[in-house]
Design a binder for these strands. Sequence first.
DNA 1: AATGAATGAGTGTTCATTCAT
DNA 2: GATGAATGAACACTCATTCAT
Lengths: 205, 205, 205, 205
Amino acid sequence: MISKQTIELDRREQILKISLRQFAKNGYHKTKISDIVREAGVAQGTFYWYFKSKEAIALEIIQNGQIHFLEVVAQGYRQTTGSVQDAIKSSEKLFEDLFNFAENNKDLIELLLKGVESEDSVYQLINETWVKIEEAFQRNIKRATELGILPEKDPSLQSALLISLIEGTLLRWLFGPKDSTLTKKTANELAKEMVRFEFFGLLGI
Amino acid sequence: MISKQTIELDRREQILKISLRQFAKNGYHKTKISDIVREAGVAQGTFYWYFKSKEAIALEIIQNGQIHFLEVVAQGYRQTTGSVQDAIKSSEKLFEDLFNFAENNKDLIELLLKGVESEDSVYQLINETWVKIEEAFQRNIKRATELGILPEKDPSLQSALLISLIEGTLLRWLFGPKDSTLTKKTANELAKEMVRFEFFGLLGI
Amino acid sequence: MISKQTIELDRREQILKISLRQFAKNGYHKTKISDIVREAGVAQGTFYWYFKSKEAIALEIIQNGQIHFLEVVAQGYRQTTGSVQDAIKSSEKLFEDLFNFAENNKDLIELLLKGVESEDSVYQLINETWVKIEEAFQRNIKRATELGILPEKDPSLQSALLISLIEGTLLRWLFGPKDSTLTKKTANELAKEMVRFEFFGLLGI
Amino acid sequence: MISKQTIELDRREQILKISLRQFAKNGYHKTKISDIVREAGVAQGTFYWYFKSKEAIALEIIQNGQIHFLEVVAQGYRQTTGSVQDAIKSSEKLFEDLFNFAENNKDLIELLLKGVESEDSVYQLINETWVKIEEAFQRNIKRATELGILPEKDPSLQSALLISLIEGTLLRWLFGPKDSTLTKKTANELAKEMVRFEFFGLLGI
DNA sequence: AATGAATGAGTGTTCATTCAT
DNA sequence: GATGAATGAACACTCATTCAT
């Protein structure tokens, strides 16, 4: 039997999901409440029973996404014992988790990557999400440097470069032209390539 | 004497410039024609004497920008004789030119980096710009591989990674928090760091 | 023991009371059913179990109020024997009763005085209330004229002037600025002043 | 020849006039912008070319009205030499001016008398208008008291009573039932009756 | 009796675009 | 070339009312 609770959650969840997809696909401004409710098969007013405003639902979507995204990043890193091999392995693991998450949450990632021109508050929250992810990576780099795995350098620059790689790769992997070599790679393959570039650059083997 | 022709060009140029700045600063959708003409000190109708529509001016702005941007990228690369040292040098040169151009054309870069959620046609043109730049880099990578400077790998992946680095770095360098270590670097310093990472990765010296 | 009947009456009474206060305080249009039910602690649908519509509850509130108001006005007047002194005394008594009633029914009075811009039907009923009160006063004036207490004049004008005085005084006394000399008067004092003006005008002692 | 200036003023003036009439007739909340523009024969957007918002136009209407109304009240009073006869004469003159103004500006008076339930800012401005008029009357009463024409009493109460008379009389004279004896009076007759009541009360001759 | 989710017609406002002058 | 008044299709949001449970 489906309880009231379940129905409400479902409807709310459904609107959240539809909104996320539309925000991701068409952007914040071009997504109209009327489109969302049409797809959900409910009346315009129903949207406002569950959500205070367009801005509010966007913020909730991103907030949720941020939490899940950060969980992945936080869990992905295992403590390394000290060898470069270990660092590479755990980095691969992290990237693979991250890419898998991204693949399973394409809409969220698209919104986080493209949803730049929205309400200010929404923009801020998206920004905050990337900053937090960058901070997580920075912590890992610092630890690796302290363990002597990585040479001493400006960790903020390093993490910035890393995040740049990740953002750009996600964009091209998930939303690039369907026939590119990049699009066809699996999360695992991509993680390996990324790590190779991360540690050894273009010259690395 | 200033001819009518000149005046027209000036006014047209002025509106283009103002529009670029406003598109960059506030985004495509949040930029209103009324704001543009107010800043330009002309009537609403005047805008439509020079430009067919909001979409048209955005396209023209990006088209112009694309041409200049590609010129820099095209000129940046000199022919390499074959040594890794040369490749590094010329890569540094390219990055430095690119960063200098970006610094002198902040508005354009901001629009190209953030202006994702606009009209479809505008989005496509921005996309095309990055693709063309990526292609330019890809050609260079291929040549370096043929010359034996770089090891054999998927050049489309390599250029994708490179462009990702560039985009992310530009975003953080030009539009990141004012007090970060990244923001304070000069174009030359940044180019050197980029190249180091490009060729040697995190482990490189 | 509280019977179901009692509970229902209570709940109904409670909603009526809350609605009256909100109508008075915020006006008919700015009072939302959602506000009323929130304050009553019941669901939106419950309101419509007890009342047909927003208009219906407003009409009922005013209808009730009209009855009580008219009772006061009807009881207020005692038969006068014929002397001016008696007329003044009984007029004072009436005003005092009326002011006391108003003080104990501020919300109702506020609604009757300010609730002008509501549904047409509501407006009509408020109007009717004042007309009936005016008629009561007019009857008294006529009787006083027949008894030779008051000089012969157009009684409809006289009662109109009287009601005007009452309405304006109530408005200022109950809802005027808290620090005015008017606001601080008691019902009895006010009644005396009113009667003095009523019978003798500005020149009267 | 009709200059642009004239046309603009006309259109603006026209919308102001239509809005005033609709606000007066239907109240602030029930007056829709769509009704106003329909009557004016212009598009919805045109309204917003001339006025910032519904609230803004209401405020402008009342502000204008307040100025004209106060002018009448200010001019109406002549300095009195000291006799009661003079005071009565000048009071009659003032009331007559006031009633004439009201007759020629029925819509404004209706809005000022009935437009109680509007936006807060609008409500405040209407209130302010009556307060200023009351102050003008109060000044006159004080002067008359100093000259020994009126007996010493609380002038704030006296002016309050006077304004109450005026408001109530206007309401009934201009908007009362068409067949009443009151409605049929001329401004001059009404002024005389008012003054009689003002100075001598019901007992006065 | 009571709930609260759902409805949908309406409301003020915005803004790119047009056009008579 | 230039003006700025005029347009009207949207759009986000509100709220009295309904109804299945």
